[in-house]
């Protein structure tokens, strides 16, 4: 066979090969939208769509970062606790500076910077322990998960940290307002997702992350700085947890030990539903976005529908998650 033959056969083989694994999550999402529209007329209303997309934003922004960590063969269980801790810290800093700075955008800016810096620092700690100290990501982040959760409970003295009332009206627009009728969380989520998709597919960083997840020895022997890329995936995720927290705090203006509970599992589930491999080596950000939407649509549809016992919500979610993954099984069979 010559090189030219190879090209022709390649194009066809690839097209056939891609179909189901690409369409799987999309089909699941479309099916859900269809079911939702049939069950309730308000489902496709602007208000409901805005609600669903805005509330998806926290998990969604985090899940984009999680896609990189998982693609590089890692895992981060600490993101939910990290978000709670950062939210608590952000509120404490803003409350503490309120008497000196007064309510206003400079103080909001300080709060945002706090969240981003804390996120990067927390991500760096996870990444440092995983790479330099060579501890399993599962164990490291299980540990930090407990640490951040305890810290926020301690900061809140077992109760709830609430943003000072004077600040709330200033910061509220970050969640509730937007431009052209699209709320800020949706805009930020979209920007993060697009940037993530481009980085994953077209930047050396994404390619290196996938190479490391596929076989870190090969990456090392190919002069890739394995530790640095791994560390950066955690730092990147920490930064995005900070971004998500900036969106979260304005919504209710409070943080407690129950903030961000189980976000890590929702984010990981969204990543896997989207077609990223849990063992690493292959990731796609757009799939993660679809995974996040699937998860929040399930909740939304169950709330909008009568006839299903709320006790069964978890079961229905579980079934749909598993179905969405089964739909992509073709990947494995084809390999």
């Amino acid at each position: 066979m010559t090189a030219t033959d190879a090209k022709g056969a390649g194009a066809q083989g690839r097209a056939r090969h891609l179909d189901l694994k690409v369409l799987g999550p999309i089909l699941a999402l479309l099916a859900l939208i269809l079911v939702g529209a049939l069950l309730n007329a308000n489902f496709l209303s602007m208000g409901n769509i805005t609600n669903v997309l805005s509330r998806s934003a926290f998990i969604g922004i985090i899940a984009v970062g999680m896609t990189f960590v998982i693609t590089a063969g890692g895992l981060d269980l600490s993101v939910g606790s990290m978000a709670a801790f950062i939210a608590g810290l952000m509120i404490l800093v803003m409350n503490g500076l309120l008497p000196t700075m007064g309510p206003g955008w400079p103080l909001v800016f300080v709060g945002m910077t706090t969240a981003l810096v804390a996120g990067v620092a927390a991500g760096f700690i996870n990444g440092f322990l995983v790479t330099t100290m060579r501890i399993e990501a599962f164990i490291v982040t299980l540990g930090t998960m407990g640490i951040y959760r305890s810290l926020v409970t301690w900061l809140a003295d077992g109760g709830t940290l609430s943003l000072d009332f004077g600040m709330r009206s200033v910061i509220r627009p970050i969640y509730y307002d937007g431009i052209l009728g699209i709320s800020w969380p949706i805009i930020v989520f979209a920007l993060v997702a697009i940037a993530g998709e481009v980085v994953m597919r077209r930047a050396a960083f994404g390619r290196h992350a996938a190479a490391i997840g596929s076989n870190d020895q090969v990456a090392r022997y190919s002069s890739v700085n394995v530790n640095r890329v791994r560390l950066l995936t955690f730092v990147f995720l920490g930064l995005l947890v900070g971004v998500a927290t900036i969106m979260y705090v304005p919504r209710l203006g409070s943080a407690s030990s129950s903030t961000g509970l189980l976000w890590e599992l929702e984010a990981i589930a969204a990543v896997i539903i989207g077609g990223t491999m849990l063992k690493g080596g292959f990731g796609r950000v757009w799939g993660t976005v679809i995974g996040v939407l699937i998860l929040s649509l399930i909740d939304n549809i169950l709330n909008l529908t009568d006839g299903v016992s709320p006790y069964l919500n978890g079961a229905i979610q579980g079934v749909i998650i598993i179905l969405a993954v089964i739909l992509q099984r073709d990947r494995k069979a084809g390999a």
Binding site: N51, R55, S256, T259, D299, N303, L304, P310
Partner: peptide, 23 residues
């Protein structure tokens, strides 16, 4: 009209109430 679990949690009840208001 409707009853759903908000799990004694602010975020969950926010979500449930948004959906009640749509419905």
């Amino acid at each position: 009209l409707g009853m759903e679990h908000g799990n004694w949690n602010r975020d969950d009840s926010f979500t449930v109430m948004q959906d009640f208001l749509s419905k």
